[in-house]
Simulated scan of single mutants.
Amino acid sequence: MSQSPHSPHQTDAGAPSLVANIGPIGGQALVEGVMMRRAGAWGAAVRRLDGSIATTVATLPRDGEGVRRIPLLRGPVSLWESVSLGTRAMLWGAKERGTADGKGYSKGGMALTTLVAATLAITFLLVIPATVPHMLGIDGRWAFNAAETFLKLGILVGYMALISLNREVKRTFSYHGAEHMTIHAFEHGVALEPDQIRRFDRRHPRCGTAFLLLVVIVSLGVHLVIGDVSLPWLLASRILGLPLIAGLAYEVIRFAGLHRHTTAGRILMAPGGWLQTLTTRPPDDDQIEVAVAALRATVSAEVDSGTPAPAEPVPAAVAGVGA
């Protein structure tokens, strides 16, 4: 997820000029594809089974802009929008690849999958890390919350490491890398060619992976304030307080993006960069080609829509396995 580039125009030889200073851009890896988003439009590209690339674009409604300017509220709003757009892009991609015949890619199947995933995330990242230290009799505000945080980090990193062993997930992580590298190249105004794009880091400072890690870290500070409570209140505070923690984490990552060239910004971004070594992989040229197609479609759609972009970089709150 990125801020506007250093150069005002994208000078990609042999292609129409893409205006590169019309606002921040974010993205997400799909199965055999990439989704990109700007302030006024989103687009996606997937590799079909016959080897061709399909693209789609759509403009985004501007209602709710007032909420997006309110600290703490804009984080949960961005999170919801990211999940919604990611789901739409995944459904579209499955149909274009000709693999949308299974229940997992129907609207009902995706809704059920999202519900199950949310339940598992709450269970393993909120309920279990809070319950285990309590059952072990770990007392003291600092000791209890440190144990809880280490459990959360262990579960999160362990899960990322485990799924990265799957062959299909590895390919998706390569598309994640292609998404980041392509955005980096676009930001720096270089030609959108594989040999040029490969010069850039496959990690990005405002990736959704970094957001997830910051949620864990920020939750430590919030839970220290709550202090020692009974187990029912403990679990309630972890679940009901999640929107607040997500909002705070969003503000932290937003601050880091605005100050990414300062020592404070680099320190805040460092943990997310470390975790992205698991969730991104070097892409091949075909995967970079798909990421470029998604970027071109998205930027061209926003330029055509004439939608004004935000004046400041606004990080995408979540990108699934994408940035």
Rank of each mutant, 00 (worst) to 15 (best):
G43H: 05
G43F: 06
G43A: 06
V46N: 05
L49R: 12
D50V: 11
S52H: 12
S52K: 13
A54M: 02
A54R: 03
T55G: 02
T56H: 13
V57T: 15
A58G: 08
P61T: 09
P61L: 06
R62N: 12
R62S: 14
R62L: 13
G64F: 10
R68S: 10
R68M: 14
R68F: 11
R69V: 00
R69E: 01
R69W: 00
L73E: 00
R74P: 07
R74E: 10
P76W: 02
P76E: 07
V77D: 05
S78G: 15
S78P: 06
L79E: 04
W80V: 13
S82I: 03
V83I: 14
S84L: 10
L85V: 11
G86Q: 06
T87S: 14
L91S: 13
G93Q: 05
G93Y: 04
A94F: 02
K95C: 00
E96Y: 04
R97M: 12
G98M: 02
T99Y: 08
D101N: 11
G102V: 07
K103M: 15
G104D: 05
S106K: 07
K107W: 15
K107I: 13
G109T: 05
M110R: 09
A111P: 03
L112H: 11
A118W: 06
L120Q: 03
F124E: 05
F124S: 10
L126W: 06
L126M: 12
V127C: 00
V127I: 09
I128F: 08
T131R: 01
T131H: 01
T131Y: 02
V132F: 03
V132N: 03
H134Y: 15
